Amino acid sequence: MNTQRHRSTLLAVTGTALALSLTACQSDTDSTSTSAPTTSATVASFPATAGKGAGTSGGTGTTGSAGSTGSKGSADPAGASADTTGPTGEQAAASTPVCTARDVRVTAATQDGPPYTHIVLTARNTTRHSCRLTGFPHVQFLESHKQDVPSVAKSKPAAPVVLTAGAPAYALVKLSDGGVDEDNEPVSAFSVVLEGDSTVIAVTAPGSDGIAVDPAKALTGYWTPELRNGADDF
């Protein structure tokens, strides 16, 4: 009876020890299997972190590239300034003040030889700044004829006439047809008015005896920046 109980106790102790041993082994196995994936995960985490870091760095680079939009923004003002600071052609002419009687000196000279059927008016800028000479000279030869001499449209220049300091402009004026039977009248001086200014400019007629004018035949050309011989014949 005692032997059987002792055997049972021994078996129980042995079973307990075996169970503890198995439990320890299982625990070792579990911890080994657990630590191995953990180590593996840790090793794998380095490339992942590096990749993330590269991605972040790349993202920053992309943001930097996007920042070049700012450069585009800075290009817009440059374009705007180019539009406002570099006007040319008609824009530049429009910003130039109109010539007045104070800005120019108007003189007259005969063209070709006798009979003198045309004269050339010269308007020279006497100031230190540019001015714009518009249209044609409003000429009146005789006190008995208070109408301006008609203008000739074909003589109008293609571009606005801008006179820099000291620069001249020209206008061809027809006096008559040169016939002996015309109703010519002698003129020693006449008046010129510039467009945009009501001041009357007194111009001395060329020649010691003045000029002979037929009011019915008189015509005037537009102001031009050069004397175009033959181009404005009328």
Score class of each variant (00 low, 15 high):
residue 97 P to V: 10
residue 154 K to P: 06
residue 174 K to M: 04
residue 77 P to V: 09
residue 73 G to C: 02
residue 185 E to P: 00
residue 35 S to Y: 10
residue 8 S to T: 11
residue 67 G to Y: 02
residue 194 L to E: 09
residue 71 S to I: 06
residue 149 V to Y: 07
residue 214 D to H: 01
residue 226 E to G: 01
residue 206 P to W: 03
residue 141 F to V: 03
residue 59 G to S: 14
residue 196 G to W: 05
residue 40 S to P: 00
residue 150 P to D: 07
residue 9 T to I: 11
residue 117 T to I: 08
residue 210 G to D: 09
residue 198 S to A: 15
residue 126 T to Y: 00
residue 84 T to M: 05
residue 205 A to Q: 08
residue 234 F to Y: 13
residue 70 G to D: 04
residue 159 A to V: 08
residue 95 S to W: 07
residue 211 I to R: 03
residue 6 H to R: 06
residue 29 T to W: 10
residue 157 P to V: 04
residue 17 A to W: 03
residue 39 T to W: 12
residue 41 A to I: 01
residue 18 L to M: 12
residue 144 S to I: 08
residue 195 E to A: 10
residue 65 S to T: 14
residue 58 G to S: 14
residue 71 S to Q: 11
residue 163 L to R: 00
residue 214 D to K: 03
residue 199 T to K: 03
residue 41 A to H: 05
residue 52 K to P: 00
residue 86 G to F: 09
residue 23 T to Y: 12
residue 41 A to N: 13
residue 103 D to M: 04
residue 215 P to D: 08
residue 179 G to D: 14
residue 233 D to T: 15
residue 9 T to W: 10
residue 71 S to M: 09
residue 121 L to Q: 04
residue 118 H to R: 07
residue 220 T to F: 01
residue 207 G to S: 06
residue 182 E to R: 09
residue 209 D to P: 00
residue 185 E to M: 08
residue 133 L to E: 07
residue 62 T to V: 12
residue 190 F to T: 08
residue 75 A to K: 09
residue 62 T to C: 06
residue 88 T to Y: 02
residue 86 G to D: 08
residue 122 T to G: 02
residue 18 L to C: 13
residue 71 S to L: 12
residue 130 S to N: 11
residue 49 T to A: 14
residue 119 I to Q: 05
residue 11 L to N: 13
residue 13 V to E: 14
residue 87 P to E: 09
residue 39 T to I: 12
residue 81 S to G: 06
residue 225 P to H: 03
residue 151 S to G: 01
residue 55 G to R: 04
residue 73 G to F: 07
residue 156 K to P: 04
residue 58 G to I: 11
residue 141 F to I: 03
residue 177 D to R: 10
residue 27 S to W: 08
residue 230 G to N: 11
residue 197 D to I: 03
residue 200 V to G: 01
residue 83 D to Q: 11
residue 219 L to Y: 01
residue 57 S to E: 06
residue 62 T to Q: 15
residue 80 A to F: 08
residue 149 V to K: 02
residue 149 V to H: 06
residue 203 V to Q: 02
residue 161 V to L: 07
residue 116 Y to W: 12
residue 91 Q to C: 00
residue 19 A to D: 05
residue 208 S to L: 08
residue 212 A to Q: 12
residue 115 P to Q: 06
residue 214 D to I: 07
residue 156 K to E: 15
residue 152 V to M: 13
residue 114 P to W: 01
residue 26 Q to K: 06
residue 233 D to R: 14
residue 99 C to N: 00
residue 137 P to F: 07
residue 188 S to Q: 10
residue 31 S to L: 15
residue 177 D to S: 13
residue 37 P to L: 08
residue 14 T to F: 02
residue 193 V to R: 15
residue 163 L to Y: 02
residue 158 A to R: 11
residue 35 S to F: 09
residue 169 A to P: 01
residue 54 A to Q: 12
residue 119 I to L: 05
residue 185 E to K: 10
residue 79 G to K: 10
residue 144 S to E: 15
residue 4 Q to G: 04
residue 162 V to H: 07
residue 205 A to F: 09
residue 63 T to S: 14
residue 13 V to R: 11
residue 234 F to C: 03
residue 79 G to R: 10
residue 50 A to K: 12
residue 127 T to M: 07
residue 20 L to Y: 07
residue 217 K to T: 05
residue 212 A to G: 05
residue 172 L to D: 13
residue 113 G to W: 05
residue 110 T to A: 04
residue 5 R to I: 15
residue 225 P to G: 04
residue 229 N to Q: 07
